[in-house]
Amino acid sequence: MSTEELQAWLRRFAELVHEHKDELTALDSAIGDADHGANLDRGMTAVLAALEEAPPADAAALLKKTGATLVSKVGGASGPLYGTLFLRMAGADTFPAALRAGYEGVLARGKAEPGDKTMVDALGPACDALDAGRSVAEAAQAAAEGRDATVPLVARKGRASYLGERSAGHADPGATSTALLLQAAAETLS
């Protein structure tokens, strides 16, 4: 993973989050506290500004800066979760190893399991695809399928869990933004 590639990935993710901001917030207003799109957009805008202001020396510094900015600027639970994902990615040499380390960080931080209707449901299948030697594009496809599979699920984590059965019938906002993260990776990482 080169610094340039990672920067391109983050820029594309920020663009996709911005384009899908209203959709993410609409999903979150159906089953949560209606702030996911705005929160993540604010966080990624802050990430790009921080990287611009002080360009990181290497890939690890870039990932740490991204994580530290997200845990501070997002505001909602996606801050600590996406922030931890990037902080844990900083220790690995390849994208599959980094994403796996990040995924394990998300599991430890959020204590969600597959099927709880969270970002885990998109991130886990993407990691599995990469670990099986498949391409980043195929991992993005797996994340998108994971997102779609959250639609019928009943939420067991976060604000959506207060809704019980009423949380079924909508895609999870976190799984939806994670699918965008992998889509951005497919478009920018080799």
Binding site: D35, A68, S72, K73, V74, G75, G76, G79, G83
Partner: peptide, 13 residues
């Protein structure tokens, strides 16, 4: 709260 006075939390804070 968030820096801009909204609802949210900040791990660095």
């Amino acid at each position: 709260g968030t820096e801009d006075g909204g609802l949210g939390t900040d791990a660095m804070a």
